[in-house]
Design a protein around this nucleic acid. Sequence first.
RNA 1: GGGGGAAUUCCCGAGCGGUCAAAGGGGUCAGACUGUAAAUCUGAUGGCUCAGCCUUCGCAGGUUCGAAUCCUGCUUCCCCCA
Length: 399
Amino acid sequence: MTVDAETLLSAFQRGTTDLIEEKQLQGMIARSLETGTPLRIKFGMDPSSPDLHLGHAVQLRKLRDLQDLGCQIVLIVGDATAMVGDPSGKSKLRPVLTREEVEHNLRTYTDQAGRVLDMEKTEVRRNSEWFDAMGFEELLKLTTRMTVAQMLEREMFQTRMKNEEPIGINEFLYPLMQGWDSVMVKSDVELGGTDQLFNLLVGRRLQEQEEQRPQIVMTQPLINGLDGRKMSKSYGNAVGLTADAKEMTFRIMQVDDEVMPTWLLHLTRLSLEEIEQTLALHPREAKARLAAQVTGFYHGAEAAAEAAGAFDREVRDKVLPDDLPRVSWQASWGEELPLANLLKEMGLCQSTSEARRAIKQGGVKLAGEAERDERAAIGRPPGELLVQVGKKRAAHLVP
RNA sequence: GGGGGAAUUCCCGAGCGGUCAAAGGGGUCAGACUGUAAAUCUGAUGGCUCAGCCUUCGCAGGUUCGAAUCCUGCUUCCCCCA
């Protein structure tokens, strides 16, 4: 594949927040194309949180783009650094992981990243490779590369100091280690989230000190989750990379309108004009297009279209899915059971209290009819009975 | 080493010894509405054999007719001084 400098450069630029230094990058690209030596793009993975979501995909997709244009992706598995804990974006001290935990997470992690990247063409390196071999003397030497004052430049640390939150000494080590990784793999470019800027720049500094050509630093923004807040699994507003086509589509269809532009930019390969055109559509159409793009990338266009159809039927047209669970009347229920207990037994409610609430609020329907009497009792139905709780939960009760 | 503070229901965070299953916010759930499961509005939000009963406020004891609130010990965490 022949790639020209312009295409390559614009791939670096699309959706990128920081690009330091762009001039230097141009030179690197030119030299790379001239000599046929692929640029080494470093990306650090943190094996402490194995579940990847679309937020992580922003960077992974950028890497994939560059990979497709002939760049060599170097994936650093931070198994040594994970035992230190990255302070970036953390308001609290991170728990230190054991080796076993790191190893365990590693598998699932690379597994999921493989849904985006071509792992065949990716160089994977664990940084324990060099850190395990590093003696105390060398480590001490590494710590002399930066001063406490330089460390404290990070606003993160300052915020934490102001809030009287703890900062572990080990946390000072993290940026140095990440930077040292760059030295060890001789990276040309390092990619990271905007919260990583400080760490990435340390790599530049260390490489210069080691008389290497300092790496280009490029950052991608952290995208917000479905509800517009920071995407995080604990907020429940993330979409997992392992989600199947239907779940992915359904979840993307409920993003806030405001997050659509950033998602279109960072999670799809649509051109800027196409994005503009998309946003001009009816918001619902725009969202459908976004969902189709993203789901299509992970599961193929066919599965994405199928999921989109399911969304239209089940959500827009409120048709109940035909694969509803079927629950048979249990002998232990006797001839009659209070409705609240029945809902709990059928797994539609977590507790009878919750079931009672749902009934009182008119959220429970039997064969489509709302039942508002919380003391109602239900006997073995003559035939199949459709039981619904709210809009999302439903099951057939079978005699 | 010394001193000071904190631990509350899913989360954050209030809480005069009784009227506390515990304010408020978030989340979640339900209803209305709608372009969707968005936004907005309303209500609910420990459990149960549910007009009553049972179990919660770091852990273990104690004082009291009665404690999330007072005392003692323990555990964990934070801050300050050295």
